[in-house]
Design a protein around this nucleic acid. Structure first.
Lengths: 340, 340
DNA sequence: CTGTTAGCGCGTTCAT
DNA sequence: ATGAACGCGCTAACAG
């Protein structure tokens, strides 16, 4: 049933090699024969078997993408952009969703991408062992998250600067009791929450504000988690007048919690997010914008470049993308209060 | 560098055939030898080449997933759920993002999945030709969108019933001027907007309300499109007092437009969406909930079943998932007005 | 410019 | 229970 290269060769009256050369645009085939073969192949509906082709050539024309989630806006958007760049260049994308610990472990022990991909794009931050496992594949590696690490080209943003601009914005508005909804969860070697937390502490110190541990809660990077965290913060003996959420999704959860507590934003509590989620504008969320799709596309391009010029210069270890604070309607000066 | 089956065979002092049998759990290997081989393989970090293995066996252990978008919540969520089911069963996922017309055309003419996948899950609705192309692959097919069609197992919802419940809700609240933000865009053979539109017209007729074409606008299934559509509806000589948006994302765009026009929801205008987007709850959106992740997982399971029992009964052509109207805070009776 | 010859690494007979 | 031989479909190296 499936038509093979020899079928095409026979129908066109040439050898299999010639068909192979003709269809892949390699030199050594007369234009006449080439177009003839193309016609026959099209008519027969022939497509080269990727398995056979990569077995013979060693190239797979496939990129492996590993992600911790797909459904979440950030990762879906990065993946979408990267996939477009890859497929436009003729590469297929093998997707690995490593959300659960089991899936993640299974992936890194069995390493199913071995001999199956020409490069790997990681949307998650591998720990030391995982990182070594990926390097052992012997293919170009890139990532859109975390800091620089050996063997990877990392396209990212300056998390500290971004978080600082958010918190500083709140300080400048006159807030003193500033809470944070962090995203620290699990031993995922995720430097993002660490950096953003450090930035938060730094700005507070800079402004001479004493850090109150009761004003920090974990939101797990989800809407529900953000809601829980905000609820927790509101239960503090002296609740915050402003909150920095480490992601827009958690910020939106916070907004929901505030609404349920009949608190007004920004009159009673100011909220700043991080990401500039597609829907941040809908709820009027002030946030730190980062080029999410841009990072996915750029990382993909970096990989393709390494694939095209294997012996070129060392690729840059880190590419920094721009960020900016977007002011909307969830932040304002604190409401004047009685002495306390 | 890459370790092959013969390397393992040599190290274990057996033949390649035995290694192959042992590692795949086929009968004909003594337990002693089997565990010994497993140990050697693990120590050498051996993984069978998928290319070679599928070339020899004909099975690829790979599922092709084609989608019109990935970044959008609906598709990302379906993909996420499906991927988890596939990978838990030992299958890899090849992802094709066919958002642009070129990408789509390229995919269906070249059909790069040929001989590369054991099954295909479609998150888009193929037209007749595309559908035939997929069938020509000779592998099980499933889809999470659109109506029943030959060769596919379609896991979906009753779009008409869902849309009817939304519009009927508005009618029951007493609204008479009910607008719709539709999602009809392009020649994508997308029956969803058609079905939802028919339901809208049906309920209006049922309630004895005359249809006013000025109250329907296209929102292109995006937030921005929804905002534009709502703005358009508000410009009508007699604007609607309630709006049914065919997706939550468009509904959120509508909410944004209303806020910009200083109109209050639901006091001035009621809004109903469709999907129960992750963030619908945050903005208090009344909507028709559908089990999005559930559909992805179920479709994946249907495919795996066909793969496991190739000669079983014909799989069901269509599986219907439950929907329900979720009442939140964006709908209310129309405000009493002066005579008009 | 084109055909012939060898594998790529594995699964699958068929012997033993 | 195990091994040898063959072929999956294609690309690469070598002839001509």
């Amino acid at each position: 049933m499936p038509v093979s290269i020899t079928d095409v060769a026979r129908a066109a009256g040439v050898s299999a090699s010639t068909v192979s050369r003709a269809l892949r645009g390699r030199p050594g085939v007369s234009d006449e024969v080439r177009t003839q073969i193309a016609a026959v192949a099209a008519q027969l509906g022939y497509t080269a078997s990727r398995s056979a082709s990569s077995l013979a050539s060693g190239r797979t024309y496939t990129i492996g993408v590993v992600a911790p989630y797909i459904g979440r806006w950030f990762f879906g958007t990065v993946l979408d952009a990267a996939e477009q760049v890859f497929s436009a260049a003729g590469y297929d994308v093998l997707l690995y969703n490593l959300g659960s610990a089991e899936a993640r472990k299974r992936f890194f022990t069995k390493l199913p991408v071995r001999k199956r991909v020409d490069a790997v794009l990681s949307l998650l931050i591998p720990d030391e062992d995982e990182s070594a496992a990926l390097r052992s594949l012997g293919v170009p590696l890139a990532s859109t998250v975390g800091g620089a690490r050996p063997g990877f080209t990392v396209v990212g943003i300056d998390d500290r600067a971004g978080a600082e601009s958010a918190v500083r914005h709140l300080v400048n508005l006159g807030h003193r009791r500033i809470g944070m909804i962090s995203g620290a969860s699990g031993p995922l070697h995720w430097t993002t929450p660490v950096d953003r937390r450090a930035a938060y502490l730094h700005v507070l110190a800079e402004a001479g504000i004493e850090h109150d541990p009761a004003l920090v809660a974990d939101g797990d990077y989800t809407v529900d988690g953000g809601e829980r965290a905000m609820t927790e913060l509101l239960a503090a003996s002296r609740p915050p007048t402003a909150v920095f959420a480490q992601s827009d999704e958690m910020a939106m959860g916070a907004l929901r919690a505030l609404r349920r507590h009949r608190l007004r934003v920004p009159d009673d509590v100011s909220v700043v997010g991080f990401d500039d989620h597609e829907l941040a504008d809908v709820v009027g969320l002030t946030t730190v914008a980062q080029p999410v799709a841009g990072q996915g596309a750029e990382a993909a391009r970096m990989l393709l470049r390494q694939l095209d010029e294997p012996d070129a210069e060392q690729p840059p270890g880190r590419v920094e993308m721009p960020i900016r604070l977007v002011l909307r309607e969830t932040t304002a000066p604190p409401r004047p209060r009685g002495p306390q």
